[in-house]
């Protein structure tokens, strides 16, 4: 039996919004420690990992591990039926073929129950190696979103070059070029930890997709190292994270 309650449906909406541009369907793995999701996009260029510890939830019970195959479009439709400030309880029986979502209004005067059919998804899990990133950048999530959006106008590819003093985002296309540099700020809004300078090229449309997670977090962490996928991590308070990985583009 699995049961998890969040005091605000808005959080769940934000989480699903951060996933649904990359994934159509995915399996939520629930255990007594919390919930996890790991899936690649259809083209196997990016991967998203969601991790939420059980203490993130107002109530959490998972007597045995369950995997819930979800259609994210359908889940989004159900979440649209709820107000952001409704509390939400998700329930699934062992070996269930559906989940139940119950929404309770803030004043408890209205409850609404929905059942959502589960999917039997054949999903492979990947081993993500522990990586020592030679550049680790923290910056406001809204700033990262703005940069990704602004550069997409110029080119499909975005070059990220990180050195001791600054991180530079560049795009170069037929229309012209764009270069945005950020230096470490005294207020620590932007921090750079650089062991080795790294320059890598990435598809801008994936970066833009990752920024769907911006409403979840004030800050974003970016990890870069030569010849490994980019890490873009949005913490979810102190209880978990959404991590995106993106394979680089390489010169022919």
């Amino acid at each position: 039996m699995f049961e998890a309650r969040l005091s605000s449906t808005l959080t769940l909406k934000k989480i699903v919004d951060a996933l649904r541009d990359i994934l159509n369907q995915s399996t939520l793995d629930c255990s007594d420690t919390g919930i996890q999701l790991q899936a690649m996009d259809n083209s196997h260029v990016s991967l998203v990992c969601l991790c939420l510890r059980s203490d993130y939830f107002e109530k959490y019970k998972c007597s045995r591990n369950v995997s819930l195959g979800l259609d994210l479009k359908s889940l989004t439709k159900v979440l649209k039926c709820a107000n952001g400030d409704d509390a939400v309880t998700i329930k699934a029986a062992d070996k269930a073929d559906k989940i139940e979502l119950s929404f309770e209004s803030a004043g408890k005067e209205r409850t609404a129950d929905y059942e959502l059919r589960l999917l039997n998804l054949d999903q492979e899990h990947l081993a993500i190696p522990e990586t020592e990133y030679s550049c680790v950048i923290h910056m406001p999530a809204s700033e990262f979103a703005r940069i990704c959006r602004d550069l997409a106008v110029f080119s499909e590819s975005v070059v990220i070059a990180c050195s001791k003093n600054c991180i530079k985002f560049s795009a170069n296309g037929e229309m012209g070029s764009a270069n945005i540099k950020l230096s470490q700020t005294s207020k620590a809004e932007v921090t750079l930890q650089v062991d080795e300078p790294v320059t890598l090229s990435f598809a801008g449309r994936y970066l833009n997709t990752f920024t769907r997670a911006t409403p979840l977090s004030e800050k974003v962490k970016i990890g870069m190292a030569a010849d490994v996928p980019l890490l873009v991590e949005y913490p979810i308070e102190d209880y978990g994270y959404i991590r995106y990985y993106l394979a680089p583009k390489v010169d022919d």
Partner: peptide, 14 residues
């Protein structure tokens, strides 16, 4: 020109 690498070449299936 550049080629997009797939993640499978970095992360192995369990």
């Amino acid at each position: 020109s550049q080629t997009q690498v797939r993640l499978d070449s970095f992360f192995k299936a369990l």
